[in-house]
């Protein structure tokens, strides 16, 4: 009996949390238009969330691209198709690896930082203090961070893909001697703006919303103790990463399934 009780208890708690998370998102979205008048708040957060994530994104993008170049070459060369290396690298990056890996890195770098920051602001009564000063923390603190996350994610994914293509070029053309003209011209010919690039951008926007939403909600909903904040930070990285991978499958099936 107590097993079923516990099961029900956990299920109810989970749904309650989901409900709170949705209300939270809704309230934040309502606060977004007001940001137009306070661009300084947004710019500060774009720097903290986006610019400071650049290093990890660029370095990771470079290595992922180089590995793609190497692996792609070894596979393609058996079929004498190594000149298609540019297409392979670019499509892998733009369709999948760019949005997905950038989002995973973003969850680890920026998401965890957001959760810890908001969680500590809650623990030290800063959020509550703002409320008592008649300032809505959802509008003043959360909304700028949310918008910054959603705007940064596609840009970071694009930079990841661009740097990755350069990495593929370095590995394939410079190190392994693939023909440079074929590398670029095939890429130019086969990568479609709507089919490939836009779908990748849509993915990264969705990931940006989900990762930032999870990170901010976990921080805002954290138990206000040091243990609570540490748990919330862990949950952000775990949930955000799983959500990105799961959603990637769904989005890929929707976008590339038919044709």
């Amino acid at each position: 009996m107590s097993f079923f009780q516990q099961l029900g208890h956990h299920a109810l708690a989970a749904f309650q949390r989901l409900g709170r998370a949705n209300l939270f998102l809704w309230t934040v979205l309502v606060g977004v238009p007001g940001l137009l008048f306070r661009l300084r708040l947004l710019i500060q957060q774009l720097f903290a969330v986006g610019v400071l994530s650049l290093v990890i994104i660029v370095v990771a993008g470079l290595f992922v691209g180089m590995v793609l170049g190497l692996q792609g070459y070894y596979t393609l060369v058996d079929f004498g198709a190594e000149e298609s290396l540019g297409v392979m690298v670019a499509l892998s990056l733009v369709r999948e690896l760019g949005p997905v890996v950038a989002a995973l890195l973003f969850a680890g770098r920026a998401g965890s930082a957001l959760t810890a920051e908001i969680g500590l602001m809650k623990t030290t009564e800063q959020l509550s203090g703002m409320e008592m000063m008649a300032v809505d923390p959802l509008k003043r603190v959360i909304a700028p961070r949310f918008v910054a996350g959603v705007l940064s994610m596609p840009l970071l994914a694009a930079i990841f893909s661009a740097v990755g293509v350069m990495g593929g070029y370095v590995a394939g053309v410079t190190l392994l001697g693939v023909d440079e003209g074929a590398f670029w011209s095939q890429m130019q010919g086969r990568v479609d703006f709507h089919e490939d690039i836009m779908n990748g951008v849509i993915k990264s926007v969705v990931f940006g919303v989900v990762v930032t939403w999870i990170a901010l909600f976990e921080g805002y909903d954290a138990v206000p103790t040091s243990e609570g904040v540490s748990r919330a930070t862990t949950r952000t990285v775990v949930y955000a990463s799983l959500a990105v991978l799961g959603l990637d499958f769904v989005l890929t099936a929707l976008m590339f399934g038919e044709v």
Partner: peptide
Amino acid sequence: LFELRKRMGMLFQSGALLT
């Protein structure tokens, strides 16, 4: 409520300064 709070000050135990 927010209008009312503008006329109420509160001093938290921790100070609750924005760090």
